[in-house]
């Protein structure tokens, strides 16, 4: 691996890992790497849950399954990363998003949420929080970030571990009500802001030692959605720098404009 020569302040070496949601960040960086002069960024993308197979072994992130190895090779032309090579690790997306709060919301409600369906069982907010926390810890991204943090700590490194929230679905998802029933319902009942607050607090609590990068404030809509302009033109996670657009009815991925804001957050957070 070669790093750019240092001409100013030392660049911070950052490894950004993620599933399909990493494509927005990758596209932003590929379009204008000079916008973040303090960062030297590498990407480790994996389709689906390929990153679930990434474990720390001997100070390196190494896939544990053949399928994950093949996918990482295809997308990144490499399959392992040494923890010592980076000043910061950022997990992007990987299921750590507002849906983690939607899971308990389907069956339970606490005082402060709308009464909702009769089938929703009253629970304490503390227990609801705990359920969301557990969802975050068990998620692909939460578990990966915690594994990396543990590896960094075992190696005695000072590297920072961050997790950038998976963008909330575009508000245009109301064009597909069937698929986004839960979120649209929460929005309609006025529960969006409370759910977002619960989710963010739970994510922070579930990931001690990990810097939480919440969805940039200006990109949000109604608590649980993203403003459509940050979703239009999103691209798929592809090998190298290939750009293939998502279909118009993809409402869950963000675009490069959004990705640039995430890179701004990373640049501001890296020590």
């Amino acid at each position: 691996m070669t790093w750019q020569p240092m001409t100013g302040p030392p660049e911070r070496r950052v490894l950004i890992l993620g599933n399909s949601h990493i494509a927005a960040v990758k596209a932003a960086y590929g379009s204008a790497p000079d916008r973040w002069p303090g960062l030297a960024v590498q990407f480790a993308g994996g389709h689906g849950d390929a990153l679930a197979a990434l474990q720390v072994q001997g100070g390196r992130l190494v896939p544990q399954t053949e399928a994950a190895r093949d996918n990482l090779q295809l997308l990144n032309r490499r399959e392992a990363w040494s923890l010592a090579d980076y000043d910061a690790f950022v997990v992007v997306g990987c299921e750590v998003g507002i849906y983690r709060a939607l899971v308990p919301y389907r069956s339970a409600r606490f005082l402060g949420l709308s009464p909702g369906a009769a089938a929703a069982v009253p629970v304490s907010r503390a227990m609801f929080d705990l359920a969301v926390r557990d969802q975050v810890t068990q998620s692909l991204g939460g578990a990966l970030a915690l594994r990396i943090l543990a590896g960094v700590q075992v190696g005695g490194q000072m590297a920072q571990v961050m997790l950038a929230e998976q963008p909330r679905p575009s508000f245009d998802c109301r064009r597909n009500r069937r698929r986004f029933t839960g979120l649209l319902r929460a929005h309609r009942l006025g529960d969006g802001a409370v759910l977002a607050e619960v989710f963010e607090a739970a994510a922070r609590a579930a990931l001690p030692g990990i810097t939480w990068l919440a969805q940039p404030e200006d990109t949000r809509h109604g608590g649980v959605f993203t403003q459509p302009r940050y979703s239009v033109g999103s691209v798929r996670l592809m090998p190298g720098n290939r750009r293939v657009a998502h279909s118009e009815d993809d409402f869950i991925h963000a675009n490069a404009e959004y990705g640039a804001l995430v890179l701004d957050q990373i640049a501001a957070a890296v020590p």
Binding site: F110, L111, V121, P122, V123, S124, R125, A126, M127, L130
Partner: peptide, 17 residues
């Protein structure tokens, strides 16, 4: 409720249920 509840209202809300 080992973590306690946010308010007396929440305690009564859950007790009724």
């Amino acid at each position: 409720e080992p973590l306690g509840m946010d308010s007396p209202e929440e305690v009564l809300f859950l007790r009724r249920a």
